[in-house]
Design a protein around this nucleic acid. Structure first.
Lengths: 250, 250
DNA sequence: ATACTTAGCGTAAAAAATACGCTAAGTGAA
DNA sequence: TTCACTTAGCGTATTTTTTACGCTAAGTAT
């Protein structure tokens, strides 16, 4: 069966990016302040996930990276594909007009692939993002995003939690050297539970890929904690040796 | 930053589908025999994953379902998004020409979103697929697929295994009523391990969402086994109550 | 009757997860 | 300088889960 309605000049592909950041206390997401080009539009929300139509010569991952770099600069990121949103009616009316004005095109449909990335949030990054027209907002405070970006963000949060079950993704949120406490705060935030500190510590110390380094916190108003690093090579080696049936039947 | 090279008439979006089937013994995948329209092409492989360019009015999930239905008819399926393949050079030369001839278009680039689905394989389905130009091939025997479909299939296998870790997806491969042995065979096939029958049984019986029904096998050359059903509602209820930290730190 | 196959129950040991008591080492305030 | 406060970090006991494996049950085929 061949497909009808193949007028491809009316539809385009875009990427949107959900970049989660963790600052040691809470989870935040990177939001772009939408520019109203050429003229102010009506009732559109000003905040959106960073995104862009893709050009002919770039892969979607390249496009996503281009978009993210604009707001976070050169630091290393690990991009992941998430989900594609392809409802033919997902952008319409004023939102569609904004896209057509902004990109100087005349589309009727935009399909968007969502990527996500995790970064360590620090002061330097936050100010960089501010200077480039974006901000970091705590997850619980986000509301009223443009387009269907609320829906996309909700879905991204689910994906993030799933990912924690599949991979040691926590370390992407933390500085190279981190303390057990930082790790625990992250787990508590993501899963929204309280964890017994002594058991958590015990478990982490038993993981052969979490390695203590010869360095401690300083200038903290309590006993300074040991720093650790994550050794991805050791993690992957272990995975080859181990097949845990117990973790399989869900 | 606005994107250059926005000539959208040269690029299109397609779906490709990886449909896994389990027949009680082995895992198979649905492959479509490619039709050479209008004229025979040269060195192209004859087998490919089912797929299609999408029309203006359908969502990608609708397109994927349309494609799959052609080969499996009306039975229920649970479609999942997998991964998007967007390398600008992923289809070129003779393969690109085939697409352009087959759909009567003149594209330079095709981005494809891959979906996958799991089905219970039985005689009836296999003959249906045959009559409609497709076949079911054992995973280990697959080679030399068209386009980049080998790569896509490899990736799909990884996704399948991951999915088993996240959700009770096994039941989508089995008939409504199944035996513990069938379930075990499936796990052994997917993870390529041997499982102790007694422990596996014990574990399954302990899951409150695997429910015995008042019915047994018949005409088997050994002690007939009890049938069970999967209760998705109970599974989801349980998940709300339970948060298992132990399963979290990977 | 006997061999063969898979179903299905039980018990014991090992491993992992949880609960929780206690001390250590830093800060800043009285 | 002592005391309150905070988080680090060690240990032990209990419970839960996983694994190993012996044994019987109930069918078919010869």
């Amino acid at each position: 069966m061949r497909t009808r309605n193949l007028s491809y000049d009316k539809q385009a592909l875009s990427v949107d990016c959900v970049v989660f950041g963790f600052d040691g206390k809470s989870l935040k997401v990177l939001l772009e302040k939408r520019r109203r080009i050429p003229a102010p539009h009506k009732v559109l929300s000003d905040l959106k996930l960073p995104g862009s139509l893709i050009s002919n010569t770039e892969s979607l991952a390249d496009a996503a990276e281009r978009v993210i770099r604009e707001f976070i600069g050169a630091r290393s990121i690990n991009l992941r594909q998430m989900e594609i949103f392809s409802d033919p009616q997902r952008v319409q009316g004023a939102e569609l007009k904004w896209i057509n004005d902004y990109y100087r095109v005349s589309l009727e449909r935009v399909v968007t692939m969502v990527f996500f990335a995790l970064v360590k949030l620090d002061e330097k990054l936050v100010t960089y993002s501010h200077r480039h027209g974006a901000e970091w907002m705590e997850l619980h405070q986000v509301q009223g995003l443009a387009l269907d970006h609320n829906k996309i963000l909700m879905s991204a949060i689910d994906h993030l939690i799933n990912l924690f079950h599949l991979e040691p993704v926590a370390f992407e949120f933390l500085p190279k050297k981190f303390t057990i406490r930082q790790l625990q705060n992250l787990y508590e935030t993501v899963f929204d539970v309280a964890i017994d500190n002594r058991n958590f510590r015990k478990k982490m110390l038993s993981l052969e890929y979490v390695i203590p380094v010869n360095e401690k916190e300083s200038n903290v108003p309590h006993k300074p904690a040991q720093y650790f690093v994550f050794d991805r090579r050791k993690y992957e080696q272990r995975n080859k040796r181990l097949f845990k049936l117990g973790s399989v039947y869900k």
